[in-house]
Amino acid sequence: MNIDDTAANDMNMRPTTVKALGVGVATGAYGLSFGAISIASGLDVWQTQALSLLMFTGASQFALVGVLGAGGGIVAAVATAVLLGARNSLYALSLAPRLRLHGFAKFAGAQLTIDESTAMALSHPDDPQRARHAFWATGLSVFVLWNIGTLAGALGASLIDDPGTLGLDAAIPAGFIALLWPRLNSRSMWALALVSASLAIALVPFLQPGLPVLAAALVAVAADRIVARKSRSSSQGGTS
């Protein structure tokens, strides 16, 4: 490839790079609130930063600090975070044939496999080169800005004595509902959410903190069984 080709290629990829930076900046703002919420939940700045560097998947991070902050144990906190992260396995499965990562790139790429980088990469199904560029550009820009945001939020919040007076305890469920909101795109998803929320609330007085949320994972399994039975009976109805 000569210099002209490289320049043309850079020009060609520029819109994707700009978009990736935009996604990174928006996620940096999430990072700011994660940092603050994590401190309000009782983690220190180092623990908060370790989560953004090592866990690096927003919903799981919010869940881990949320469950710990509410007095849940390690097991409940880790289990909730890991269950929420299960979708990243599916993302990696769909990305693997498109990215074709080998060696170190596979281990680095794995860490960058999150909602944003996957969505950006999969939005170029017919252009593998652009898909790869979108994945790395988005993954890296989100990683850097999410971590900077986390640090700023954590340092800011550690200056505050009582998070309750600033309403940071309400910021935690508000953060969860903002993550949930775009997924409530049909009536059945609303039903799923309402059943899960009601079950968790009903269990609060009877279980240790953290476990009611974990119990809501069973609703996902039950819903799968119901949908499977429905589609089986409707396909039988269709053929007979």
Partner: peptide, 10 residues
Amino acid sequence: YLPICLLSAL
């Protein structure tokens, strides 16, 4: 389904 169930419970 898992993110919806867990996030709404949270």
